[in-house]
């Protein structure tokens, strides 16, 4: 397996993100939005972090990029190409080696034309040519360079956003929810663009709520529940329920339309009232008293799982 041969491009260990908030006057509370997050991305590989909305997925991207809001603090360790990714190092490579592709064109400057915006104002012939090549690749007309973001059609948006990543030479691409509100065909095409980036040698981390779509293009799936990574599995593991490890992942599998659309009662707990130990415990049929203790993230059948009963 290539995981053993090579070092990962990005390795996130035990990441936690805590928000400090004021509620009721001067009383400060801490919201642990993310705890125990572990992800690894290798070069040429596409990893999908899958979780339902409100699980803190987008913050993962902001945390790695070092652009968390001022009232958030991050713990854990991020390693990029063998070295620890400190804030200082990130400043240097942000937007060059590590790029992020946002959710929508609301992330583009409304008063800057598309061309200069993708080129970040660079005017040299090389970056102009590069952009023309990218546009040709994505079947965008050259005139699009002169449009403002509000003039883009829905179909162009995705391609414009991914162009901002293509114009750099990224070793790591983080895509935050790249398919919101898109119809299946367009969404699939958008995901394929990211697959192409991975095939060109970059490590791609896609953050999404769409498990089915992720299964079609990604190599590995990391399942995210209430701010915690609870399982890491290869795409092949999702062919059968038995090859999956965590009860929540299995529940997700059963909830897929082709596997019977079954759902389990209850909702993902809010960060303020997380149970001790396993966050899924209140909804789990296998739950015992042991589940309220610290649950280790362990390797089971070449994948990883945060459940003491998985085997």
């Amino acid at each position: 397996m290539r995981q053993e041969e090579r070092e990962p491009v990005l390795k996130i260990e035990n990441m936690s993100i805590v928000f400090t908030q004021y509620d009721r006057g001067m009383h400060q509370t801490e919201l642990p939005v993310i705890r125990n997050l572990d992800v690894e991305v290798y070069a040429g590989e596409m990893v999908a972090v899958v979780g339902s909305s409100g699980s803190g997925k987008s913050l993962l991207a902001h945390g790695v990029m070092g652009v968390l809001p001022y009232n958030a603090s991050m713990g854990g360790r991020i390693t990029y190409c063998r070295e620890e990714l400190t804030g200082k190092r990130m400043e240097k490579i942000r937007g060059k080696e590590i790029v992020m592709v946002p959710q929508s064109t609301a992330f583009l400057n409304p008063l800057m034309k598309i061309g200069p915006q993708i080129r970040k104002g660079r005017k040299d012939e090389e970056s102009r040519k590069k952009l023309r090549d990218i546009f040709r690749r994505y079947e965008l007309k050259e005139e699009v360079e002169k449009l403002y973001p509000f003039e883009l059609s829905g179909g162009m948006n995705r391609r414009i956003l991914i162009s901002t990543a293509m114009i750099e030479k990224p070793k790591l691409v983080i895509a935050d929810e790249p398919t919101p509100g898109l119809d299946l065909k367009v969404a699939k095409r958008a995901m394929e663009h990211f697959r192409e980036l991975a095939d060109m040698g970059a490590g791609v981390l896609v953050i999404t709520h769409d498990l089915e779509l992720a299964l079609e293009v990604a190599d590995r799936i990391v399942v995210f529940y209430a701010g915690t990574t609870i399982e890491e599995a290869s795409v092949q593991d999702f062919e059968k329920e038995e090859t999956l490890r965590h009860p929540y992942t299995k529940a997700l599998w059963r909830a897929m339309p082709k596997h019977g659309f079954q759902y389990i009662p209850g909702t993902q707990p809010y960060v303020k009232n997380l149970p001790k130990g396993c966050p899924f415990a209140p909804r789990c049929s296998q739950c015992t008293g042991e589940c309220s203790k610290e649950i280790p993230y362990r390797t089971v059948r070449e994948g990883k799982v945060r459940c003491i009963y998985a085997e």
Binding site: H62, M65, V67, E91, R94, G95, K96, V99, M100, P102, A106, F107, L108, N109, P110, K120, T164
Partner: peptide, 10 residues
């Protein structure tokens, strides 16, 4: 959002 993204682009 657009300044956040600009910052992420370095």
């Amino acid at each position: 959002d657009y300044v956040l993204f600009a910052r992420m682009r370095g």
